[in-house]
Write a protein that binds this DNA or RNA. Structure first.
Length: 568
DNA sequence: AATCGTACTTAGAAGCCATTAA
DNA sequence: TTAATGGCTTCTAAGTACGATT
């Protein structure tokens, strides 16, 4: 068996669609069983203490643990929780408890806070013991053997029970996410492997041997009824090759994107409405890096959209505004209920088409009523083998990084400035892809702290300069070796402090510009890592400055193969 | 052509932990 | 030594895509 460095990176390993020949693993790690509360920690109903049955108590603790969170103040959350909680109650509890507002979970909540405080206060030895235990679990369950390699598993722990927290305005927030038992679990491994054993006295739902898929374990979750999987870590061969393939597809798009653009511009003039809609949608996907926008079941999830599912209410048309013609204003919630807001001028033909699409429609009607993702992707497939809507996002993200790096990097800047340039290029992509984050709660304070540091450094610098000056004067007078040396030392000190100051200032700029932007998602999922590897080699920046350990493991394939001439 | 089921990628937030400042 | 900070890891929700079925 060999380590990750001896992968033979190949794009197409098997030609029959199978993903592996041999797969052996230990199965999942289950959530620890529920530990009842100590007797002195009470739940109160209508001001009176009330002992709950274990199942009702467990669900109550889920709520208690979230008491400080805004979620628990939301009506839908409370309603969903209460409904599911009642299902766990005994009939006696059901008749006693009739109003969530009369339930007092604060003692439970305080207990958990005290516990987490106690965990922080543990001695070094106790913490070490826990760490070792975790390490043992990782060694036993965290790896599998796929074909000839020992591979790290991504998520080998089963999700513990709790209250469902959706993103945004989710109609199911607060529902009980039930505990997963061995009887819910499907195991996937090869026939000739040592099969994982279910915990004593239990059985798996099923053991199968399907080598057309990459997952090791699956179960069906009870909120949406969707399937959850245990799969390999991004560092694994199977994920790495897939990732590589993704970027190769995007590079193929690069070769034919001009042709495709010409074609969709032409299609804006089509006689057929469906073709015009397809062409305008594709233009948005290409120009604005919008997601495809699959249909979603209404009422089952938060109301979010992508390109194909945009509704009339999500855009506004301005024939003229702020001195610009044909402006479209987008305002909608995308994936994870992140707001997409953009006001951009478009070509006249696009504008006229949009006006046409809006005719006789209500705000809640689909903008592209003759289009969906499957129609669009079928069309794209005809334009290029393997082309789908999301390839445009990958392509535009990667090509933007490459262009920005070329534009922003200058030979004379030092390493911190180079890193700033890199981050700025990365940021351009994050903005394109609308990767946002909530500004960190401590943002203002941490900026202030940094500014304090900068001010202190500036004082230090002027002191050092003054000292240098007097040392020079001294040397001029005395002209001996000792004072000359002193000048040299002072000079170096000034230089060092200047460098430190510069570094701090760069850091401040970087952080300020990054306030609401998340760089991680594009770095991890959209930017061909070979562009970054090549940039590092070209400018003699060590790869550790750009990628941390986990990222280097994920991008091992790219670090292996890209040289400084790599072009996306 | 609509619907469903499945498998996989992409996503931001929370939690954890090492480092640094006080 | 302790507390604050920030980076990294973990978690799991929420997307995309596609083949099968009706």
């Amino acid at each position: 068996m060999s380590g990750p460095l001896d992968y033979q990176w190949e794009e197409e390993r098997y030609t029959d669609g199978s993903k592996w020949r041999f797969l052996e693993h230990k199965g999942p790690v289950f959530a620890p069983p529920y530990e009842p509360l100590p007797k002195n920690v009470k739940f109160y109903y209508d001001g009176k203490p009330m002992k709950l049955s274990a199942p009702a108590e467990e669900v109550a603790t889920f709520f208690a643990k979230m008491l400080d969170h805004e979620y628990t103040t939301k009506d839908i959350f409370r309603k969903n929780f209460y409904k599911d909680w009642r299902k766990e109650m005994t009939s006696e509890e059901k008749s006693k408890i009739s109003d969530l507002n009369k339930c007092d979970f604060t003692e439970m909540s305080d207990y958990f806070k005290a516990q987490s405080e106690a965990r922080k206060q543990m001695t070094k030895e106790e913490k070490q013991k826990i760490r070792e235990e975790n390490e043992r679990t990782l060694q036993e369950y965290g790896f599998c053997v796929m074909d000839n390699h020992k591979e790290r598993i991504g998520n080998f722990r089963i999700e513990p029970p709790g209250l469902f927290r959706g993103r945004g305005d989710h109609p199911k927030m607060g529902m009980l996410k039930r505990r997963i038992r061995p009887e819910d679990i499907i195991i996937n491994c090869s026939k000739d492997s040592k099969h994982p054993k279910p915990p004593p006295g239990t059985k798996w739902k099923e053991v199968r041997h399907d080598n057309k898929v990459t997952w090791l374990v699956s179960w069906t979750e009870n909120i949406q009824g969707s399937i959850k999987y245990i799969m390999l870590n991004p560092s694994s061969r199977i994920k790495g090759e897939k990732d590589w393939q993704k970027y190769e597809t995007a590079r193929r798009l690069k070769k034919c994107v001009d042709r495709i653009r010409t074609q969709y511009r032409d299609d804006w003039k089509s006689k057929e409405m469906r073709i015009r809609q397809r062409a305008v949608a594709l233009y948005f996907i290409d120009k604005l890096a919008l997601r495809a926008g699959n249909e979603k079941e209404e009422g089952e999830t938060a109301d979010t959209v992508g390109c194909c599912s945009l509704r009339v209410e999500h855009i506004k048309l301005y024939p003229e505004i702020d001195g610009q013609e044909f402006v479209v204003e987008f305002d909608f919630l995308g994936k994870d209920s992140i707001r997409y807001y953009n006001k951009i001028p478009v070509e006249k033909r696009v504008f006229k088409n949009l006006q046409l699409f809006l005719e006789n429609k209500q705000p809640e009607d689909d903008l592209f009523d003759r289009l969906n993702t499957s129609i669009l992707n079928k069309h794209l497939q005809e334009l290029m083998d393997g082309l789908t809507a999301k390839v445009f996002r990958t392509y535009n993200a990667s090509i933007t990084l490459q262009q920005q790096l070329k534009e922003l990097t200058t030979p004379e800047e030092n390493i911190p400035a180079k890193i700033l340039s890199y981050n700025r290029a990365n940021r351009a992509v994050a903005i394109l892809c609308n990767h946002q984050r909530a500004p960190p709660k401590t943002f203002e304070k941490s900026m202030q702290n940094l500014q304090t540091k900068i001010d202190a450094k500036k004082d230090q610098l002027s002191d050092a300069r003054r000292e240098l000056k007097s040392a020079k004067a001294d040397a001029k007078m005395r002209k001996d070796e000792k004072t000359k040396k002193a000048v040299d030392t002072k000079k170096k000190a000034v230089q060092r402090i200047e460098e430190q100051l510069m570094k701090l200032e760069v850091q401040a700029t970087d952080r300020e510009e990054n306030k609401q932007i998340a760089l991680g998602t594009s770095k991890l999922n959209y930017l061909d890592p070979r562009i970054s590897v090549a940039w590092c080699k070209k400018w003699d920046v060590s790869i550790e400055k750009i990628y941390n350990k986990t990222q280097r493991e994920k991008f091992a394939w790219a670090i292996d193969m890209a040289d400084e001439d790599f072009e996306f």
